[in-house]
């Protein structure tokens, strides 16, 4: 059996790096990630203040939204994130093909988000829910579409990473770019985990 076929058939073993004090990915990406966290922290405060001023609108608001859409997006993002964990694990074992496959899978699942969002917005509009329907829906569109923009950047980053992995740019010794893209992708997960209950569950 050749090395490449052995690699493509091998199981990706979890290989978490446990060097105390390590900065995963690269410092530049962490600046970006903290900017995103600050941005969304401010936007979440807009949600909190709007809710405090309009408790009734935020009480009945989630009833008109499709919980299934929010749930589907959460499952897609978490599963896509899982694929990126596996992609990072694979490259640490120099399994480039496996890493590429996991990254492509993550991209494929990640693209499910804008598709679900498209159908959700179509469904909303068909049911008379748009940006000016009420304060709850204004905040809902503002926050979820801002998140979608960040996910789009993340997807572009993952496509770049897949191309780089495809040409053999990463190895067990040099994969900080792949790790940085995965970290940004997980950050969009964390932000969505907050947005999901805000608009689909909490009353």
């Amino acid at each position: 059996m050749t090395t490449s076929s052995a690699e493509s058939l091998s199981v990706t073993v979890d290989t978490e790096v446990t060097v105390p004090g390590r900065v995963p990915g690269n410092s530049g990406m962490w600046v970006g990630i903290f900017c995103v966290l600050v941005e969304f922290f401010l936007l979440f405060n807009v949600y909190f203040i709007a809710k405090a001023h309009n408790p009734e609108a935020f009480f009945i608001g989630p009833d008109k939204l499709a919980t299934i859409a929010g749930t589907a997006i959460t499952l897609l993002l978490l599963t896509s994130g899982y694929c990126m964990v596996k992609a990072v694990s694979a490259i640490r074992s120099d399994q480039r093909k496996a890493s590429l496959r996991w990254t492509i899978m993550a991209i494929f699942l990640g693209f499910g988000y804008p598709i679900v969002k498209y159908f959700e917005i179509r469904w909303n509009v068909a049911h008379g829910i748009h940006g000016e329907t009420g304060v709850f829906y204004t905040v809902y569109y503002y926050l979820t579409l801002t998140h979608l923009v960040h996910v789009t950047w993340g997807l572009m980053g993952l496509i770049w990473i897949a191309l780089r992995t495809g040409v053999g740019a990463y190895s067990s010794q040099n994969h900080s770019g792949l790790e940085a893209a995965a970290l940004y992708w997980h950050t969009t997960d964390i932000i969505w985990l907050v947005i999901f209950p805000f608009f689909y569950i909490l009353r």
Binding site: T18, R22, P24, G81, L183, L193
Partner: peptide, 16 residues
């Protein structure tokens, strides 16, 4: 959920 993503997906348990 946030803690799980931070600790396990992002491997923060041993990070800076």
């Amino acid at each position: 959920k946030g803690g799980i993503v931070v600790d396990h997906y992002m491997e923060m348990r041993s990070a800076n």
